[in-house]
């Protein structure tokens, strides 16, 4: 770590960035806050409603259901993607020609536009003409993600694992390759088992990158929208209606801008709180 000197004029380097990001972040945020306290019927005519929407959102079953679904979805994909990503990173070769091949192929899903990801999985999973759906039905599993909530959930999770596990793999891999060879040699001399090497060397050294991975996956999965709307559209019924989809249904489908804004803000604060805790822990580790 570089020891940094105090220099207040360094602010001048940062001002352009602050200005540009604030323009994009603060104005919409302020607008959403304004919406959250008012009722509108279009044409920029607003009526003050006070805290009505917040109260309504906090007490509505719809909000509770969507929130629970969102928590469930995020927990499931974190529980799958993080261990799976670590396992794959551990079994990847460290050097040689296969490294580049692995990395490029694995990074590929991350570079596909999100609506294409959704569309791709849609045609991949269709029960009559999709590879996955057809094969499953052919071997006798009753699978139809447009009709059965369970199938829809499995497809959604599978899609997210397909889309994002590589992020965890790449991060964990970067952490692993940064471990000096001497650590492995010392462990060998100390007679450490494979499990002990993982527990006492690899895992601690990956802690930082894994925190980043969990943080990014948490934030992005909490906000998942494009892929999901293309894949299931929130259905069947409301079974895969996660936060963002619900918000859009509310805001654009029913034009209940106020409640949608209030709901977004509640979500935003929850994510902010969780991320802040994470970020603080991450920085705490870094200082040691």
């Amino acid at each position: 770590m570089i020891s940094k000197s105090v220099k207040q004029s360094a602010w001048f380097f940062v001002i352009p960035v602050v200005f540009l990001v604030a323009f994009n972040a603060l104005i919409p945020l302020m607008t959403v806050v304004n919406y959250a306290f008012q009722e509108t019927f279009g044409d920029n005519v607003f009526f003050w409603e006070g805290l009505t929407w917040f109260e309504q959102v906090l007490n509505s079953d719809r909000f509770h259901d969507a929130f629970l679904r969102q928590i469930m979805f995020t927990s499931i994909i974190l529980l799958i993607e993080v261990p799976l990503g670590i396992a794959i990173a551990l079994s990847m070769p460290r050097k040689g020609p296969w490294v580049s091949v692995c990395l490029v192929l694995m990074a590929l899903p991350l570079l596909i536009p999100w609506n294409v990801v959704g569309a791709m999985w849609n045609i991949f999973a269709l029960p009559d003409i999709g590879l996955l759906g057809y094969s499953l039905n052919a071997i006798g599993i009753d699978y139809n993600f447009t009709q059965q909530p369970i199938s829809a959930w499995i497809t959604t999770i599978l899609m997210d694992v397909w889309h994002w596990t590589s992020l965890v793999v790449l991060l964990a891999y970067a952490g692993l390759t940064a471990i000096p060879e001497a650590y492995y040699q010392a462990a060998k001399i100390d007679g450490a088992s494979k499990w002990a090497v993982f527990k006492w060397i690899q895992l601690p050294k990956m802690k930082r990158v894994l925190t980043i991975a969990i943080l990014l996956r948490f934030m992005d999965s909490f906000m998942i929208y494009t892929e999901l709307i293309v894949l299931t559209g929130g259905g069947p019924g409301n079974s895969t209606t996660l936060l963002s989809i619900d918000l859009v249904k509310l805001a654009l489908g029913q034009f209940d801008l106020g409640p949608a804004a209030a709901m977004s803000l509640v979500y935003f604060f929850v994510v902010l709180l969780i991320c802040w805790v994470f970020y603080t822990l991450m920085m705490k580790n870094e200082q040691q």
Partner: peptide, 15 residues
């Protein structure tokens, strides 16, 4: 900027 739907209470909050 009417689309931003400013009100005094929310403006007060940001101030």
């Amino acid at each position: 900027l009417s689309w931003m739907a400013w009100t005094w209470p929310t403006a007060g909050f940001f101030i």
